[in-house]
Amino acid sequence: MGVGGTLEYISELMSSGHKHKKKKKQFQTVNLKVRMDCDGCELKVKNALSSLTGVKSVEINRKQQKVTVTGYIEQSKVLKKAKSTGKKAEIWPYVPYNSGSSLCSSVL
């Protein structure tokens, strides 16, 4: 966590009253698989996710179709925001349903 994130976290702890305990979002990393074909797609996704409250960074690897978002965020909200761009988005790691491997076949 950078100095800015640490200072913000400490500031929020100091300013929050003990009487009104609110569920605090934890600092976390959310990885998504997002279909992006061009620079415009990438920029649209990056701008949308960067606008979410609590987001500290958005990194995109278009070759892998992978988006990494870090901050005081909720996975469900990040996914919803990514989908709001009109792009196909899902939680990483992406495992195709018809991948050919099955846990059940090894048991039988």
Results as ranks from 00 to 15, higher is better:
residue 62 R to G: 02
residue 45 V to K: 01
residue 41 C to V: 00
residue 34 V to N: 09
residue 54 G to P: 03
residue 85 T to L: 02
residue 25 K to C: 12
residue 103 L to H: 07
residue 41 C to L: 00
residue 94 Y to S: 15
residue 14 M to G: 01
residue 3 V to C: 13
residue 85 T to K: 03
residue 58 V to P: 10
residue 36 M to G: 00
residue 11 S to K: 02
residue 54 G to I: 08
residue 12 E to V: 01
residue 80 K to V: 00
residue 46 K to V: 00
residue 78 V to G: 10
residue 102 S to I: 04
residue 55 V to S: 04
residue 29 T to Q: 10
residue 91 I to M: 15
residue 63 K to R: 14
residue 39 D to N: 07
residue 7 L to T: 04
residue 97 Y to T: 09
residue 46 K to C: 02
residue 32 L to D: 09
residue 51 S to F: 00
residue 106 S to V: 00
residue 9 Y to R: 08
residue 68 T to M: 12
residue 42 E to T: 14
residue 48 A to N: 09
residue 32 L to P: 11
residue 74 E to W: 07
residue 70 T to S: 10
residue 24 K to Q: 13
residue 32 L to N: 12
residue 24 K to H: 09
residue 61 N to W: 00
residue 95 V to W: 03
residue 73 I to D: 13
residue 66 K to L: 15
residue 8 E to G: 10
residue 66 K to I: 11
residue 61 N to Q: 00
residue 35 R to V: 06
residue 87 K to N: 08
residue 42 E to F: 04
residue 33 K to V: 09
residue 101 S to L: 03
residue 75 Q to H: 15
residue 20 H to R: 08
residue 91 I to A: 13
residue 26 Q to A: 10
residue 71 G to A: 01
residue 81 K to G: 07
residue 37 D to G: 03
residue 55 V to I: 06
residue 98 N to S: 13
residue 38 C to I: 02
residue 105 S to I: 04
residue 31 N to Q: 14
residue 23 K to D: 11
residue 49 L to V: 02
residue 8 E to Q: 12
residue 31 N to Y: 14
residue 95 V to C: 07
residue 29 T to C: 08
residue 11 S to G: 02
residue 16 S to W: 05
residue 39 D to H: 09
residue 62 R to F: 11
residue 54 G to V: 07
residue 106 S to R: 07
residue 63 K to L: 13
residue 101 S to K: 03
residue 81 K to D: 07
residue 46 K to L: 01
residue 101 S to D: 01
residue 81 K to L: 07
residue 66 K to F: 11
residue 64 Q to K: 05
residue 81 K to W: 04
residue 33 K to W: 09
residue 6 T to K: 14
residue 35 R to W: 02
residue 63 K to G: 12
residue 107 V to W: 04
residue 39 D to S: 08
residue 51 S to M: 03
residue 39 D to P: 03
residue 26 Q to G: 06
residue 91 I to W: 08
residue 88 K to N: 09
residue 87 K to A: 05
residue 33 K to P: 02
residue 6 T to F: 15
residue 65 Q to N: 15
residue 94 Y to M: 06
residue 60 I to F: 04
residue 85 T to Y: 04
residue 83 K to E: 15
residue 45 V to L: 02
residue 59 E to T: 12
residue 61 N to S: 02
